[in-house]
Computed example of a mutant assay.
Amino acid sequence: MAACVYASPMEKGWYYLHRCICGAVLLFLIAPILIIVPLSFNSVPFFTYPMAGLSLRWYEEFFFTDRWQGALHNSIFVAVSVTLLSTVLGTLAALGLSRPNFPWRAAVMGVLISPLVVPIVITAVGVYFFYAEVGLLNTYAGLIMAHVTLATPFIVITVTATLMGFDHTLARAAAGLGAPPITVFLKVTLPLILPGMISGSLFAFLTSFDETVVALFVAGPAQRTLPKVLFSGIREEISPTIIAAATVLILFSIAMLTSVELLRRRSERLRGI
């Protein structure tokens, strides 16, 4: 704010121009969503403007039909399982990487976050051929393990970022006072890294809940997730119910990302940033 108050008129002009350009770019990116979402309230099964009328029939179909509810339950079950497993594995990995004498830290970190770099199609094809050999295709266990591989890097990154500001002398002081390692973790370490764990868990949940490509290769008819049903619906039959389902997912994602931002600010306050 001080920079804006004391800036010259030309600098202030460039500042506001930059903000206007950024706002125009963001509006251009979200305009397709803003145009499509109202069609989920259309009373007729056509994508037309102006709309013939308003109706909630497509949301009723999404929330009260077996096809959509079965897919939603599968997605929630898989995403919750993935979140729990990836949070445990990612937190343990981040705690190990945070040790000052950990060998080959950069190489291990590169391997852990490689699922974020490798194209998802390549990962899906590799998982498909591997599962075909071990018999994990068309199973919940196979889908969950594949999603854990994709979600764990988010936990590792967020918890590692939280541990960068962690004062390890607190843990050493607690251990010096006679506290066992598990008590040191639960009473000292965990409360300070909890915002990072929760933020990473939310990203892990969204990663699994919205994932489509791996599910198309690995999941069978019994493991049809919501993104897979959405993809099949777009390919086979265009229905406003698809837009209603996508709108629900958009609102859910906005709520989750808002929670992540609030947790990030809380973490900064705890670390005194």
Rank of each mutant, 00 (worst) to 15 (best):
E211F: 01
N42L: 07
V218S: 00
T149L: 09
L136H: 04
Y128V: 00
W104G: 03
L163A: 07
L163G: 03
T83K: 12
R67N: 12
A222Q: 13
P181E: 02
C20A: 15
V159L: 11
L192I: 10
I144P: 09
A151R: 01
Y131F: 05
T160F: 07
V25S: 00
I157N: 00
F154T: 06
K12L: 09
T152E: 08
S75D: 12
R172A: 09
S267T: 01
V214H: 00
E11A: 15
L226R: 09
L262Y: 14
A171P: 02
T207D: 06
H18D: 02
W68Y: 13
A255K: 00
I120N: 12
L262T: 06
V260F: 06
T87F: 07
C22V: 11
A175S: 15
N101S: 13
H18E: 12
M197R: 13
M109T: 03
S259Q: 04
L216K: 06
C20I: 12
I76A: 11
G196W: 08
S86M: 01
A204E: 05
A246S: 15
A107G: 06
C4T: 10
R264Y: 10
L216Q: 14
A179V: 07
K12N: 07
L192F: 08
T91P: 00
L226N: 07
D210V: 02
G200Y: 10
